[in-house]
Computed example of a mutant assay.
Amino acid sequence: MATDRLTAEIEARTRLVVLSPHLDDAVLSCGALLARLRPRTPVTVATLFTHSGPPPHTLSARRYLRQTRASDAERLYASRRDEDRAVLDRLGVSWQHAGLPDGLFRRRQRQGAGRRALARGVPELDHVYPTYRLHLSAGRISDQDAGTVRQVADVLSELTAPGHALVLAPLAVGGHVDHLLVRTVAERSRQRVVYYSDFPYNQEYDVDPAFTRRHALVRCDWESGLDDKAELIRGYRSQADALFPRGSIPRAPEVYLLPDESAGATP
């Protein structure tokens, strides 16, 4: 499919709001498109989960810190925020950091004194998503995360008021809860939404066909500007080596899913 439908969707609105779960997702999945839009459309990249949390950390969180060669979570996330600001400033787009804790570090809000005491020795008991594989990347939003859903919805509402904005939201390819949570909020909103396929996870996992059918979405591949995208991604120095351990960043088209007007989809 030609990119004309995507360009038409963007130009039909006065501005573009890109929802980025983490401090790199927007550029990983949409960097080439953002570079093309820079002189033509007002763009705001809103990153939701931009902070860590205090120790003690779960085993999964400690593994992530080792993977990124970080000894302190707060310093790591401060560096990640700096990296994100630098890349987005270079692209010439506006940005906003919502300040919510990353899923690896989100804690339960209500629990008894006994559980809190045990959690000092077993931090998993204190966290909404105790493990990465069984919880954070399992494609299910915990009931304990209802407050986070409301916070993300408040951020989106503020960003899109007044109306006439187009929202880009993740498809949650790969099942990461933070991506799924953001997709869910966008899906429930009254905004016009185009979904982007989460790179690099879409190199290994497929888009959820049930979600695509439910919203009558059609695929659009974006290939303009891909030659410069790897350099943008490498601006996220703390993450690039962990995401691409072989050293090379695949040159893959950006994938967007748009409402199929012929199917009678509604904004």
Rank of each mutant, 00 (worst) to 15 (best):
V218H: 09
G139F: 05
S224G: 01
T131S: 07
S197N: 11
M1T: 08
Y77S: 09
D208Q: 02
T212C: 12
R107K: 05
R237G: 14
E231L: 10
G99V: 06
L217N: 06
S71M: 15
G99T: 10
A78I: 14
D227Q: 09
V152D: 05
L37E: 01
D227N: 08
V167E: 10
E254G: 03
E158F: 02
L23E: 08
F105R: 06
P21N: 08
Q203W: 00
G121Q: 08
L136Y: 09
H97P: 05
D178I: 11
V93E: 01
L23N: 04
D82I: 09
L37K: 06
A138F: 00
E223Y: 05
S157G: 15
A32Y: 03
S189K: 02
L91T: 08
R63K: 14
A26K: 07
A119N: 05
I10C: 12
D84V: 11
V182P: 03
V149Q: 07
A230W: 07
R234C: 10
V167I: 10
G112K: 08
L217I: 12
E204G: 03
L19K: 09
T44S: 03
N202L: 06
V155H: 12
S248F: 15
E223N: 04
L258M: 05
D4G: 08
A26C: 07
A46M: 01
G114A: 15
A169Q: 04
R150G: 13
W222K: 08
A210S: 05
L16P: 03
R90W: 11
R150S: 15
E9H: 13
R213E: 15
R5E: 13
V173R: 01
T131Y: 08
V93M: 11
L34D: 05
Y129C: 01
